Computed example of a mutant assay.
Amino acid sequence: MTSKGALTKARLAESMLELIQTSGYSGTGLNAVIDHAAAPKGSIYFHYPEGKEGLGVAAVELAAQRFEALITEAAAAADGPAGAVRSAVEALTRIVSESDFRLGCPVSVVTLEMGAESERLRHACATAFESWIAPTAAFLEASGVAANEARSLATVVVSTIEGAVIVSRALHSTQPLTSAADVVAELIDLRCHPAGGTR
């Protein structure tokens, strides 16, 4: 059974994650997190002695875990890496559009706001991106992409999707995400099935 303290700690991280997505890291105050989580005052420093920075790290780690799970599920359900990318982007598109373009990737938000201000937050964001790039690279390699190309291609895939989320929010349109999925899927197909033969 999960303890009351553990539930409060998890609820605080969840609230921080949601508020970062809608208000940004800088725009999210600790009082807002406490109110959103319906947590006792003082609970943040009890569970996160480093205060807002520690809570921000926890939120980034939570976002990383969720998107990594999305990648894993997409890879398991799809018939190949191109299909997996399309499936993952479709899930992201639903999140962005159903929130009326208010929700995006909290990791990119924290990176842009705090990457130059907090080494701890920058490292948490770098770890999050790596947790998405590494399994994507492994899946690409298992699908026929040469080992020395899989990491580079995986980095392009993740970077392209991240950028498309930002542009979609700015334009209030899912077209950037749809276009990104099309281009990335085509690139993956070319690498997995190069002209003139297979790897």
Rank of each mutant, 00 (worst) to 15 (best):
K9F: 03
R11V: 02
E14S: 08
L17D: 08
T22N: 08
G24R: 11
S26F: 12
H36L: 04
A37I: 02
K41H: 11
Y45V: 09
F46A: 05
P49G: 07
K52G: 00
G54D: 10
A58M: 05
E61K: 13
L62G: 04
A64D: 13
Q65A: 13
Q65F: 07
F67N: 09
E68L: 01
E73W: 02
E73A: 14
P81I: 03
A82T: 04
R86G: 01
S87G: 05
A88L: 15
A91L: 07
R94T: 10
V96Y: 01
P106I: 05
P106M: 05
V107E: 03
V110L: 07
M114Q: 15
G115P: 14
E119C: 04
E119W: 14
R120L: 09
R122A: 11
C125S: 10
C125D: 06
C125N: 02
F129Q: 09
A134W: 06
P135C: 09
T136D: 11
A137G: 08
A142E: 15
A146W: 04
A147C: 06
R151F: 06
A154M: 07
T155Q: 13
V156D: 11
T160K: 14
I161L: 10
I166C: 05
V167P: 08
S168E: 15
R169D: 06
T174A: 03
T174P: 03
P176H: 10
A180Y: 06
A181E: 12
L190W: 11
H193N: 14
H193C: 01
G197S: 07
G197R: 05
